[in-house]
Simulated scan of single mutants.
Amino acid sequence: MECAKCSQELTSPKKTAKCSVCDSSFHPSCTRIKNLDTYKQMNKDRRSKWKCDACKAKSAKSVKPAVEEDSSSESDSNDQVNVAAVLAKLSRQVGALASVPTDVADLKKSVEFMSSQFDVFVADMAKMKSDVQKLESENQKLKSSVDNLQTKVDYLEQESRRMNIEVHGVPETRNEDCEKIVKDLASFLEVDIDLKRAFRAGPMKSDRSRKILVELKSEESREAIANAAKRNEELVASRFSKSWPSKRIYINENLTGYRANLLHQTKMFAKQANYKYVWIKNYNVYMRKTEGDRAIKVNKIEDLSLHS
């Protein structure tokens, strides 16, 4: 329930003054009673006969001598009550309108605050965008530097392997002599090599034998045995031991981890893109789509996307 004067909520019947004519309710402080303490001091009879200012004013104007009262007095009284009710309603509406300027002012302040906050947000977003662009530029420079360093490190590592080869497909046996195996392979291929040493390399695997890493004394020996092995399709394990399977033995250049991965990725790409040939020459990866096409050198994995 709201006060008919100020339109604020009435919290308790004991703190509410009620008009005996129009039944409108008020805060005592919103009437001529002035305050709650004065209202509490009024006895029950006075409270029950209490009239609001509007109804009291109407009653004063409508008072007539008793001799002039006639049968129309009851109708006039009802009209007075209706007018008083309308006036009370208007009073409540006017009271409600009184708070509109304050509400508008508060709304204006809120809008201004939100506008200022939005401006701050826009400025912060612009700064963040600028910072991100700077970071992206710095990241690109760092990536370029890392790529250059990786290329240099890979080159130096590959240079240290220029006289090495890898032998794949030779079954691993106990007490084997890797140097003798390599010499037997060279003899079968009719190639003279300057052997420095040979040994198994890499982690043990249950499903296949480890590769034999061969260190030679010259690049000429490396090129001779690697090229001869590629041309000879009869290089199978069973030719060197009856207990070995008839599986191909491969002799490859000893690639760095980076180039070995590049070769693997190039082979996978070639299967998907229908490139027929992929090979290694002087530690560089090449591919060719069909016989007679030009050879494509693959320097990095990103190069593959240029030929899809």
Rank of each mutant, 00 (worst) to 15 (best):
K18V: 15
N284W: 10
A84V: 06
Y258A: 02
D103G: 04
P101M: 05
S145H: 13
K34P: 00
A126L: 05
W50I: 09
Y155K: 13
Q272Y: 05
N164R: 08
D23V: 01
I249T: 00
E233P: 05
V298H: 01
G169F: 01
A60M: 09
S241I: 03
L304W: 00
K134Y: 06
Q150W: 04
I193V: 12
M204Q: 15
L36D: 01
S48P: 04
K134Q: 14
E233A: 09
D154A: 06
A228R: 03
T31R: 04
A201Y: 02
D194H: 03
E234H: 07
G95N: 07
Q133C: 07
K14V: 10
M114E: 15
K108W: 06
A237I: 06
T173R: 13
A17C: 02
S308C: 02
R294F: 08
D119Q: 14
C55L: 03
N175L: 09
R174K: 14
L10D: 14
K109P: 02
A4S: 14
S116Y: 06
A66F: 12
N43K: 10
V120A: 14
R92E: 13
K14F: 12
F113K: 15
L90P: 05
N82F: 07
N232M: 04
Y258V: 11
D147F: 05
K217G: 11
V146R: 13
N299L: 07
M1P: 12
C52N: 03
Q265F: 03
L263M: 07
I165C: 14
